[in-house]
Amino acid sequence: MKILVVGAGAVGGYFGAHLVRAGRDVDFLVRPARAALLREHGLSVRDVDGNVETVPVSAVTADQLGSDYDLVIVTVKSYGFDDALKDLSPAVGPRTAVLPFLNGMRHIDTLVERFGADRVHGGVAMVMTRLGERGEIVQVGTLGSLIYGPLGERPVVPLDDVHAALDTGDHTATPASDIRQELWDKWVFLATLGACACLMRGPIGRINSAPGGQEFTSAMFEEAIAVATASGYPPGREARERADAIIANTTATTTTSMYWDLTHGNPVEAEHIIGDLVDRGRALGVPTPLFSLAYTHLRVYEAGRG
């Protein structure tokens, strides 16, 4: 199977390195400057113990793409998705599957509209990594898993083939029978955690330990659950308990990548993770006052970045 990984950042670089190391036929679609660095120095991953492994990789730019890929894995940040979609489109032939590992649901709607449901799989990535100052992938926690499944009834690339490609033994790889539910479950959790951390400027444990903190995080969680339920994807008991174990924690230092970006002056995924949830709630008649506040807060931050 010939694979194109779109992006070589914290998610794409980490899992893409695993694919290369396992002998998969992989190209990375990146910008010209990043391509030059990868060709010269390879892709480096630093694990939680500080050990660095560098793997030689094949880097391509948009003008070099052909439609001979079997699987296109999209790993960019949501604010780069529209540009990435333009760049990757020539790589998607009639028998190509597109598998995005982004948060939220807006990108799923866009890809299905563009390529048809049978050429799109949904994907959930759980990983604790960041992009280092020298372009290396820095692992900041041991979590590393992928969940994926087709969105159409007759996928052009069967789930078994996708699983065989992604199951390298370096991370957990799990085929899903209902990937839309998995996507919603993660979105509810991530949006709640990210909105709480960004509004309160702190990790979840510190928020819950403050006066009114647990009432605040619980109310935020219930807003997200209400939108998911109205959309037809209420979280099951296991998913809710798993999320609540973190969201209600009084000692955890857990935050999200959106909080990290906010506190380091970077662009944030406000539209995709928070704004879209607010929009869907409004369309369904579900009030989301706390998420609306978080969205306004993040838009003010973005405006301040210029």
Rank of each mutant, 00 (worst) to 15 (best):
L151M: 11
R154L: 07
Y79Q: 15
G93E: 04
S145H: 10
V162Q: 02
L143I: 09
T110M: 11
R95E: 15
G141D: 01
D170G: 10
G93I: 13
L190A: 06
V98P: 01
D68T: 10
V120G: 02
K77F: 12
Q139L: 04
G122F: 00
R95G: 11
P100I: 10
A195Q: 05
V157M: 15
V124C: 02
V140S: 04
A84W: 06
V127Q: 07
I137R: 11
V127T: 05
L99Q: 07
T172W: 12
V76N: 13
G104C: 06
H121Q: 07
L146M: 03
L71D: 11
D70H: 15
I179W: 11
T110S: 14
G116P: 00
G169D: 01
N103Y: 03
F115G: 06
S67K: 09
V92T: 12
V162S: 03
W187P: 05
H163S: 02
D178G: 07
G66W: 09
T192R: 04
Y79D: 14
E113W: 03
E133K: 13
I179H: 13
V92D: 07
V124S: 00
P155Y: 09
G122S: 05
S78T: 15
P175G: 09
G122Y: 01
T172V: 14
Y69I: 08
L151V: 04
N103M: 02
I147L: 11
T174R: 07
F81R: 02
T129Y: 05
A191Y: 13
G123Q: 01
D118M: 02
P94Y: 08
L99I: 12
L146Q: 01
G135T: 10
V120P: 00
S78N: 15
V140M: 00
D68F: 14
P150H: 01
Q139M: 06
A176N: 10
E136R: 11
F101C: 08
L102H: 02
P90A: 04
G93Q: 08
S78L: 15
V162T: 08
Q139P: 05
G141A: 08
P100L: 08
V127W: 03
T174P: 05
R180A: 15
G116I: 01
A173E: 02
L193V: 08
R114W: 08
L151C: 10
D70M: 12
L190W: 11
D109W: 10
G149V: 07
E182F: 15
L88M: 15
E136F: 09
V76H: 11
E182R: 14
M105A: 10
S89R: 13
L85Q: 03
R180S: 12
G116H: 01
D170R: 14
L143A: 11
T174L: 13
G135R: 09
P150W: 03
N103G: 06
H121M: 12
A84D: 06
I108S: 06
L99E: 04
R119D: 03
M105T: 13
A173I: 05
R180L: 15
F101R: 13
G141E: 01
R130Q: 12
T192Q: 05
H171P: 02
K77V: 02
A91N: 12
D167F: 02
A191E: 13
H163I: 12
A191N: 15
R130M: 09
R114D: 06
A125E: 00
R134K: 13
L111Y: 08
L131V: 10
L111H: 08
P90R: 08
D167N: 14
G152T: 08
L143C: 04
G169T: 08
T129V: 10
G149K: 06
V120N: 00
W184T: 07
